[in-house]
Design a protein around this nucleic acid. Structure first.
Length: 447
RNA sequence: GUGAGUGUAGCUCAGCGGUUAGAGCACUGGUCUGUGGAACCAGGGGUCGAGGGUUCAAAUCCCUUCACUCACCCCA
């Protein structure tokens, strides 16, 4: 078999699917608890949507998109994130005119990247978006929602880092950007910087070449660097939240105040700068200690300019995206095992076609009563019981010559290792009276 | 895109120049023909990632390539 799943994709086999169900259930339950409703948008969109929404200069748009032409020569792209799609859908259906819209989604995203621990070419996100409000309390509520989601999954040792990167008013982020560049120039002497002509001051403490490049393209990114030299320079650099305009400062203060009211622990981290162009004001990440280099479980923030950039009316929004694979990886790491539902009943017909026919009849009745049940179609007989634990079987219904002769079924409790005979008619009555807890009825036979 | 590491049975790995390539777990059968998880016995399964080279001889050494993993970049 030489055909394999494409690089960076993975099969989720039945042995693991219960983890996904657990995460998806926690996501839906939590989102709905907070008043969010589900939205589903296409998995591919016009390439323009992402180019404009996420930003031409970003890594995602520059080199990570799965873009193709369809037979009608349209340029389409497998979505690398979902916020832009949600906004597009709302603008398209003219839903943004009224009150606040609170939406959540679960689904795959695609990015052409080199895979590593916690990073794939197809991955899945649970996300929420609240569109039509600039309330800072909504930002805080969503952080609270994210933490509730993780709490339901049993994840602890998480930290919430928040920051504000201001707005596009000239006295806010643009002004800060100028100050930052000035500071970086004064502290940089790399060759590359000199070549770019961006640096005229030859000092001693250098930024790395990557950061010199970033300084030109997107100076905020220098904050992401993990190299010691750069970190030192960054540690004394002007902070975004110290340079916010009055409105943004008040907004950020309100976010923090609300988080305190909600009892969410956080730390202000001036180094977090989200990669996508559309972010304004609040940005945050939920981080885990139990992962490798890709330790962000959830990233989010406010995007008051996105609708405008897509050519729609100007509406503010805020949201986050949480990686499902990463959540599952942390659960695996810390030994959180979601319950794996089993099939409680296995029917073993032993001996002949009559037994098999009777088994089929009884199987139907068991299923009609609401009890998941399986039949030994391959006539493996008692050997099959070896798999009881694995399959989650609690009861084996045995139908053989003796049982047929007496009009009975033998029921074996596979955990208690006890066995009882019951008349077929009586069993049917019992199953009919099962109500909401039909398995409990079987359980009661062995008290 | 860059760097490093690893590719041998379904899984975890041993073998690192010398006959027909091994172990544990898993699987199948038997001891036990209608009663599982134990034990013992037997069995199936591998183009040693692929291609080329060195050598009397290559899973083992060299080159190329592919895949996987981790890290950088960036992010969920």
């Amino acid at each position: 078999m030489e055909i394999k799943a494409p690089k960076g994709t993975q099969d989720i086999l039945p042995d693991e699917i219960h983890k996904w169900h657990a995460v998806e259930k926690a996501a839906r339950d939590t989102a709905e608890l907070f008043g969010y409703r589900e939205i589903r948008t296409p998995i591919f969109e016009s390439t323009d949507l992402f180019a404009r929404g996420i930003g031409e200069g970003t890594d995602i748009v520059e080199k990570e998109m799965y873009t193709f032409l369809d037979k009608g020569e349209r340029s389409l792209t497998l979505r690398p994130e979902i916020t832009a799609s949600v906004m597009r859908a709302l603008l398209e259906h003219k839903k943004t005119g009224g009150d606040l819209l609170k939406l959540y989604y679960i689904g795959p995203i695609f990015r052409y990247e080199r895979p590593q621990k916690g990073r794939f070419r197809q991955s899945h996100q649970f996300g929420v978006e609240a569109i039509g409000s600039d309330s800072p309390q909504l930002d805080a509520e969503q952080i609270c929602l994210a933490m509730e989601f993780y709490k339901r999954l049993g994840l602890d040792k998480l930290s919430v880092d928040i920051n504000s990167i201001g707005c596009s008013n000239d006295n806010c982020r643009p002004a800060y950007r100028r100050d930052l560049i000035t500071y970086l120039k004064e502290n940089t002497d790399t060759l590359l910087g000199v070549l770019f002509g961006e640096i005229d001051n030859i000092g001693n403490k250098g930024l790395c070449d990557d950061c010199a490049r970033r300084m030109v393209n997107n100076p905020l990114r220098v904050f992401d660097c993990k190299k010691d030299g750069c970190k030192q320079i960054i540690s004394r650099a002007p902070r975004t939240y110290e340079h916010l305009c009055d409105d943004c400062r008040a907004h950020f203060e309100k976010v923090k105040e609300t988080l305190e009211l909600l009892g969410v622990k956080y730390r202000v981290n001036p180094n977090i700068v989200r990669g996508l162009d559309y972010y304004t004001r609040t940005v945050y990440e939920v981080l885990s200690e139990s992962l490798g280099a890709q330790n962000a479980l959830c990233g989010g923030g406010r995007y008051d300019n996105l609708a405008g950039e897509l050519g729609g009316v100007k509406v503010g929004g805020t949201g986050f995206a949480a990686g499902i694979e990463r959540a599952i990886m942390v659960m695996d790491e810390i030994g959180k095992k979601p319950e794996r539902p089993g099939i409680p009943v296995i029917i073993l017909p032993v001996g002949g076609e009559k037994a098999m026919n009777q088994a089929v009849t009884i199987l139907k009745k068991i299923r009609d009563s609401g009890i998941p049940a399986e039949l030994d179609y391959n006539n493996r007989g008692f050997k099959l019981l070896k798999k009881s634990e694995e399959e989650g079987w609690r009861f084996a219904f045995i139908i053989g010559e003796d049982e047929l002769k007496e009009g009975k079924v033998s029921i074996k409790h596979l955990i208690k290792r006890d066995q009882k005979g019951i008349e077929t008619a009586e069993l049917e009555e019992l199953l009919d009276s099962g109500g909401k807890d039909p398995v409990g009825i079987l359980e009661n036979l062995f008290l």
